[in-house]
Simulated assay, not measured.
Amino acid sequence: MREIVFDTETTGLSPQNGDRLVEIGCVELYNRVETGRTFHSYFNPGRPMPSEAEAVHGLSDRFLADKPLFGEICEDLLEFIGDSPLIAHNATFDFGFINHELGACGRPTVCVSRMVDTLTLARQRFPGAKHSLDALCTRFGVDRSLRVKHGALIDAQLLAQVYVELTGGRQIGLGLVAEIIETEDPVPGERPGTSETMIVAMIRPPRPHAPSEEELARHAAFVATISDPIWRRVG
């Protein structure tokens, strides 16, 4: 099953009050395994960046000045996410901003039935504990050393690992999975930040476990040292 884990950065907390989306990062999962395909883009919000928001993600007015508007990228984003389930941490926040931006572009909004909220999953699994992304990374041993500030793509990559652990880990149901080999080939004309990945399932051949001649000889020598072995008394 294909799923998309994503995260956003914004100018504030409320699109209804004029806040805008400034960054989105998406990570593709296939059967809970990262394929290597991602979508990442910054957006010019068309309004000043509040200092409080800049302190969180480090995206300044100067940095965003030459970035595209959301409407210039939305078709690429919609193509990438397709009709897959969309996974986010505190997902109602991210869905609210994406749907507000899509509505402003005259595009249909994303149905909330596709929403998977890892914050809700974490609260159900660990009631009373801390449920921030940092806390969940610590709980599951996910390396977040590269996360100096909030960033949509790196947070989506961290969340993808957390989501896999929240939903049972790599071996869900104790089943065995095939080896996943990832090969990335650039697609002509593709926007930076996306890539096509071919996933090939390889079944490893069985390994031989027969004893060597030396092991057989050592075993025979050991058996010869046993006095009155029980197998000589039977039959």
Rank of each mutant, 00 (worst) to 15 (best):
G36F: 09
M202T: 12
T225Q: 15
M1R: 09
D143G: 09
T10W: 06
P85V: 13
A221W: 02
M115Q: 09
R191V: 03
M1A: 13
W231S: 11
H209A: 01
T38A: 09
L64D: 07
G141P: 04
L136S: 06
G189R: 09
E101W: 00
H100N: 15
V56Q: 09
T92W: 02
E52V: 04
L174Y: 10
L121W: 02
L78H: 08
L29K: 02
D76G: 08
R32C: 08
D83S: 14
V142A: 03
T8D: 01
A53D: 04
C74E: 06
T92D: 08
F70A: 10
A91H: 08
L216S: 14
L216K: 05
N44P: 15
I226R: 06
L176S: 08
E196I: 15
A122P: 06
N17G: 05
E196R: 07
D19G: 00
G96M: 00
F80I: 00
R2Q: 10
E179K: 14
T194Y: 14
S145R: 14
T225W: 06
F39C: 10
S132Q: 07
G103P: 15
V5P: 02
V187C: 11
E101R: 01
D83P: 01
C74W: 00
V223Y: 07
Y30Q: 05
M198S: 12
E165V: 06
Q171A: 13
I154N: 13
P206E: 08
E52P: 10
L13G: 05
F140T: 10
I4R: 07
E52K: 14
T183F: 15
